[in-house]
Design a protein around this nucleic acid. Structure first.
Length: 427
DNA sequence: TCTGGGGTCCTTAGTCCA
DNA sequence: TCTGTGGACTAAGGACCC
């Protein structure tokens, strides 16, 4: 893996950790491109009945629509909303420009997703600068250059900075968005006063399952959690989670801002518009997904040793089957072969709703590294190289596996990574 | 209500080996 | 030779995040 990491120091009590979160990012980018929709409810995400909402404009949020909500429900809540499929490539470009603004202030930037990042600005705190002033200047610069708003949390560690951001964010209301302060600071020394009245669900790492478990233990607020002995939480929630939550409830988070973290796995998965029971069709989908994963591995200069196939059945039960190979592979054909072996052992009679392929145990590809293809000669690896060259020249869809070009398969027009938030309406 | 896609991390269980 | 133990690794599933 890459060694060019530049991590910040652990927190030392200095008010120098920022969390920046773009407001309704995907929806705001779409509104910037289509200002005529400014006062309409706009929803970005999967447009088909099996999709989910990736982002909702503040007008859409006033109808109760929020991200991760099934699209079908969002349609019922607001039938006249404008549903857009989303343009991940464009959001990526905007994100890069926003991140470059952060990098002008500090090299210690840890992106969490396209629209969020942690910054360690302790090294930039010189003269009379204070972190809150830096936070305000970031907001101003993002708005000046991109005409987009963001919210910034400032605190003495990452986890508190993230909580602070929630306080700074706009809130939807019946009369439109109520804009927040844009910047919220949790002062050093005021951490517990801020933290303890909050519901435990606000803590990073407490989802529906852990939240319900804590509730059964009579723990509703962060203050309740902080009153529990550490061993009690470890016994109830497991060593790692118990220790993690115990520390967070006392406002302790020693994680530095991490720069340049490499991916641990690369995968591709898709929910089908209708459940599939035909092994031949599933096999062709698997080849297409393996091809997409191989492309991304090659772009990153990586190869993986563990192949995992994920299958979600019609009743939503999900299984994974994995196999670790003796040597790393990065070719579409080799990945597809390994994935097909795993899928062949799965009973698909219940109907397959989602299929996925992913590669883990990643490492950089070296010139001497042999792939599984070497066992059968160089031909497939050579072919993958040529495919990569053709795609580089003529675009990602100029060439693909022959199994996908069968007449009537309906697959050849589907693009890699096309359905980021679920199958589209027309599929 | 009916639940996406891309990930990370943790836990548990089984196997192999020293 | 047999048995127990512990570490490393693998596989599978669950929970969580954006």
């Amino acid at each position: 893996m890459s060694e060019d990491r530049l991590d910040g120091r652990p927190p030392d009590g200095t008010l120098g950790f920022l969390h920046v979160d773009m407001d309704a990012f995907f929806a705001s980018v779409e509104l910037r491109r289509r200002p005529e929709l400014l006062h309409e409810p706009v929803v970005v995400g999967g447009t088909g009945n099996r999709g989910v909402v990736a982002a909702a404009s503040y007008v859409a949020r006033s109808y109760g629509i929020h991200s991760a909500m099934p699209t079908s429900r969002a349609r019922r809540l607001c039938p006249h909303a404008v549903f857009l499929p989303g343009d991940h490539a464009h959001y990526g470009e905007v994100s890069e420009r926003v991140m470059s603004i952060f990098h002008d202030i500090t090299p210690l930037v840890e992106p969490l997703s396209l629209d969020e990042a942690f910054l360690d600005v302790r090294g930039a705190l010189h003269g009379r600068d204070i972190a809150a002033e830096i936070a305000t200047s970031i907001r101003d610069r993002v708005f000046e250059t991109e005409q987009l708003t963001c919210s910034v949390g400032v605190a003495t560690n990452k986890f508190l900075a993230k909580l602070a951001t929630e306080r700074a964010k706009p809130r939807p209301s019946d009369v439109g968005p109520v804009f927040g302060s844009g910047v919220h600071v949790i002062e050093a020394g005021g951490e517990l006063e801020f933290l303890h009245p909050l519901p435990v669900r606000d803590l990073w790492g407490v989802g529906p399952a852990t939240g319900a478990r804590l509730s059964r233990m009579g723990i509703e607020t962060v203050g309740d959690l902080a009153a529990q002995p550490e061993h009690h939480l470890r016994n109830a929630l497991g060593n790692a989670v118990g220790l993690h939550l115990h520390r967070l409830s006392h406002a302790v988070d020693e994680r530095p801002v991490e720069v340049g973290r490499g991916a641990k796995s690369i995968g591709h998965e898709e929910t089908f518009p209708q459940d599939l029971r035909d092994r031949d069709r599933l096999g062709r989908q698997l080849v297409r997904m393996a091809d997409a994963v191989a492309g991304r591995l090659r772009d990153a200069g990586l190869a993986g040793k563990t192949v995992t196939v994920k299958v979600r059945f019609a009743d939503f039960t999900t299984i994974t089957r994995s196999n670790t190979l003796p040597e790393p592979i990065d070719g579409g054909i080799a990945i597809a072969r390994a994935a097909e072996r795993l899928l062949s052992a799965v009973d698909i009679n219940a109907g397959v709703r989602l299929l996925g392929v992913s590669m883990s145990q990643l490492g950089e590809v070296t010139a001497e590294q042999l792939s599984l293809d070497d066992l059968v000669g160089r031909s497939w690896s050579d072919a993958d190289d040529v495919v990569g060259e053709i795609r580089g020249k003529f675009g990602g869809h100029a060439i693909g596996p022959a199994t996908l070009s069968r007449p009537g398969s309906g697959l050849s027009r589907m693009k890699q990574g096309q359905q980021q938030w679920g199958p589209g309406q027309d599929l």
